[in-house]
Amino acid sequence: MMLKKFLFADLDDTLFQTLEKCAGRAALEPAAYYSDGSVCSYTTPAQRAFFGFINEGMTVIPTTARSLDSFERVSLGFNSYVLLNFGGIILQPDGGIERDWQGRMHGLMTAALPGLQALAARIDAWAARTGYAGRTRLVEDAGTPFFIVVKDPRKITANLETIEREVVLPWIADGNDGYCVHRNGNNLAILPASLDKANAVAYVTERLRREHGEIITFGMGDSRSDARFMADCDYAIIPRRTQLSRLTVETL
């Protein structure tokens, strides 16, 4: 019996990346766009060959932190489920929002919102006190608040490490263990612990098993925040020169 194969794949820095993260500049093609229509990310020839290869034998399910709006500006073609906002939103194959999951997540995220707001105020107060130019932003989508994020205006990642060490981690240690940190590149995100790609992957995997019987699952991602959902899949794929690669195979 031929089992159906499904690849849960992160997008940014996994299937494509910004120009400055491309190892070479030859034969790049646009893969995602900013809201003004300019290109924000590109694929390399190797990534396009890999994408063609996996589409021949398996169904690709985007598993990303991107929102509904930013996902619509990705030019790669997908035809199955889509997991957005770190798993906070699941799109069905017809493009509609999975309402049972949305209702569950809306309740959890609404309960976690006061903590996110308190931490955002603490980070912004620290920024005002120290003269730091960055500020927090609450990410909301489809009427649900999900997480807060800080980006360094000058893309100095050491500044985000300082915020994490001096503000965020002490706040979490001070009785706020229902939240976790994701820092990769120029993104410092603080999420409710209940917002996890792995939870959404488990939900969709169970749905796929009901639809198709026994299946094989693959997980692919670049960040340590992807590791949990990848570990729950039958096989894991890690792109080289990424945060997750440095923490695992490159270390060995």
Results as ranks from 00 to 15, higher is better:
G95L: 06
P93G: 04
S70A: 00
R48H: 12
Y132S: 10
L119S: 04
L84T: 06
P114H: 01
A125E: 14
S80A: 15
Y42M: 12
A112F: 04
V74W: 10
D94T: 01
G131M: 01
F71G: 00
R66L: 04
H106R: 15
G77E: 15
L84S: 06
R73Q: 08
E98A: 00
C40D: 12
L138A: 04
R73W: 04
L91E: 03
G52A: 09
S67M: 00
L108E: 13
R66N: 03
Q117L: 15
S80T: 06
L113F: 01
E56Y: 05
S41P: 02
Q47F: 11
R129H: 11
G52R: 12
L76C: 08
A133S: 05
V139P: 09
S80V: 00
T110W: 11
R99L: 11
G57V: 00
G77C: 11
G95C: 02
I54K: 12
T136P: 11
L113N: 07
G115S: 10
G87A: 14
V139R: 06
E72W: 06
M109W: 03
L91Q: 03
L108R: 08
F71W: 01
P62A: 02
Y132L: 10
A125H: 13
T44V: 07
A49R: 13
D100V: 04
A133L: 06
R104Q: 13
V82C: 15
W126M: 07
S80E: 13
I97T: 14
V60Y: 07
L113P: 01
M105E: 09
G115K: 06
R137Q: 15
E140T: 15
A128H: 09
G52S: 09
D100H: 01
A112E: 07
